[in-house]
Design a binder for these strands. Structure first.
Lengths: 199, 199
DNA sequence: TGTGATACCGACCCAACGGTATGGCGGCAA
DNA sequence: TTGCCGCCATACCGTTGGGTCGGTATCACA
């Protein structure tokens, strides 16, 4: 069996995965390229062969790794929700699982740090938020059509609110780990979700 | 009139204010001490005379400037709220005013960046969140006693949720400035607040 | 088997980082 | 007036930051 020794796509992913770990833990400015290539067990030569500079690498990480993770954990599951009880259960589960290593937590913390100052990163991150909101809009509109979301609900408003709520949970969870705050937030969120119920 | 030439307390505040501007714009790791003393029109000698190191200065900023600003804009006003309509108006107003320069936005972004990795900063920041939640708890309990908050409401849960919601708004606002998202979030938040109303 | 292109390494560059050492100057008590 | 301490400036240090460059190993293809 021939094992290729040079696998550029794999190398690229290895770098992005290492970068993701560093970004999630130390933020964008706090993550050095040295720490990233050390974690990847590669060198700066490899890094700068695949990416023009640090920012371009961060954008690639956002688009190639972070966005798909958000998609998989937070967005795709919405498609198979068919009742308000299912939506409640899903939101509660995601709230209780929230941790600093979660993709959503990385999205939120990178956004908070960089979006205001760096428009390139900001736009890449906002695309994910936009997509996320869009998925909630689609869910709520479907819920209205299927009769388990109240007719008077405005999907775009509630979608923006829900995404912001998860973002907020991830911040307060970072400040105050432990189950307590997550549980109370999850409970209050379920109370809010009840207001969307038909009738 | 004798104008004192050495005013250490004033110098200290000048440094902290400059640090606050840098932290708000570039985060903790992204703010260099050089940029801070330049903004303050002082030198590192002054900085390290008043603070042991960068982290201690950040803690001093959090406790001496950030916390009082949060207190003034977000916490103290809660004391003079005497009806659910007043609470709705207050929350809407704060939502619509939210900007990257707001103290709450700085609190959130610094928390997202540092709380998970630096327990010293994390605890200083969490104190503010804790105090904020406490103020909402007091408000909701008073509202129950005065009869304009529903009896079945659990103040601690709703307080955690409200603080998280504002934190989330500040993040999504950073990613997507402009009135649109803020307005829709404010609307949905008011819808949620209605669920707290007595009867 | 050669050959040009791609993938990666390792040493290096300079600027900026957080932090220190020293010393002058203003203000106050004796 | 002197002596001293608190306040702040200046110059500097070692390290690390992002980024460059020449070279080498490996590839696809001829």
């Amino acid at each position: 069996m021939k094992q290729r020794k040079k696998q550029p796509q794999q190398t690229r992913r290895t770098i992005l995965k290492a970068a993701g770990v560093e970004f999630s833990r130390h933020g964008y400015a706090g993550s050095g390229l040295g720490a990233i290539v050390d974690r990847a067990e590669l060198t700066k030569g490899a890094l700068f062969h695949h990416f023009a500079d640090k920012r371009a690498m961060a954008v690639a990480w956002i688009e190639n790794l972070l966005a798909p993770e958000i998609e998989e954990r937070w967005i795709t599951p919405l498609e198979s929700i068919g009742s308000l009880d299912a939506l409640r259960a899903f939101c509660r589960a995601r709230c209780m699982e929230l941790a600093a290593e979660d993709a959503a937590s990385a999205l939120v913390s990178l956004t908070a740090e960089t979006a205001a100052a760096d428009s390139t990163l900001g736009e890449a991150l906002d695309k994910i938020f936009e997509h996320w909101r869009g998925a909630f809009v689609a869910l709520l509109e479907r819920g209205k059509a299927e009769g388990w979301i109240h007719r008077s609900i405005q999907p775009s408003a509630e979608a923006a609110f829900l995404v912001s709520a998860f973002a907020g949970f991830s911040v307060t969870t970072r400040a105050h780990p432990g189950e307590g705050v997550r549980r109370t937030c999850a409970g209050a969120l379920e109370g809010y979700l009840e207001t969307l119920r038909a009738q």
